[in-house]
Amino acid sequence: MIRAERVTMKFGRVAAVNGVSFEVAPGESVALWGSNGAGKTTLVRCLLGILRARGRIEVGGCDARRRGKALRSLVGYVPQELAFHDDTRLGSAMSFFAGIRRVPVSRARELLDQVELDGHERKRVRDLSGGMKQRLALAVALLADPPLIVLDEPTSNLDAAGRAAVMKSLVALKQRGKTILFASHRPDEVASLADRVLVLKRGRLIEDTRPSLLWPSEAGVLTLRLFVDAERESDAAGVLRGAGHLVNLNGHGLCVAVPGDRKAEPIEVLHRSDIRVRDFQVLADYQPDWSRS
């Protein structure tokens, strides 16, 4: 479905994406993983043919450089945050995109109903919650029933309920055989949705692996919040990173991504380095921005 060969995108002298090559088979679900600035969003934009990258990109046999418009008709795109005119009413936004996507308005109504936004057609976009906006973006992306869905951190601005709703839809899409490419910084989402993970670092593809190898646990990924002495927090973060853990240091303790069946491991690692853990919490439904790890 997707073939990318030596894709390079430079802004001035900085290569946001540098020689990235990969393939995605039809029906596969692939995650783009990496810290902020790793090149995930730029790569997504190159794949959509919005940015003209060097190298070769093909989606469904359409070359991004020569047949960008045909390529985008095969793709439903969900951005990190829906960008519509604030004054636009939800119904007229759907009608507009239905026109662009060449589908009847009845299909737009049907999708609004299915994403549970029916009855909100008269609402202006500025009056929608983050979750509603993302559901609207998903409805727009699905208007023409495209074979490929591309999502750029679709749940990053949502609360737990909103995230669960979007993930449920994405899992349903995957079960239906859609090809999915998504950028995410949440291990739980990647573990539950992705067949493969492409790990990006400073614009380069450094690893093409499976979620089970990146986070070897079938019990799911939890967040462990550790409380250590303030002056030792940086040391603790370094030790945990050295042991291969994802760590987020946000001023409210030290958050570590842990497999559900090995929750005590980070505490043991710190103990071996003579760093005392004063207290800890297991946060089942909290995922910090791991991309800042």
Partner: peptide
């Protein structure tokens, strides 16, 4: 959100 969103 209904998973039926993707069934048409």
């Amino acid at each position: 959100m209904s998973s039926g969103a993707v069934q048409t």
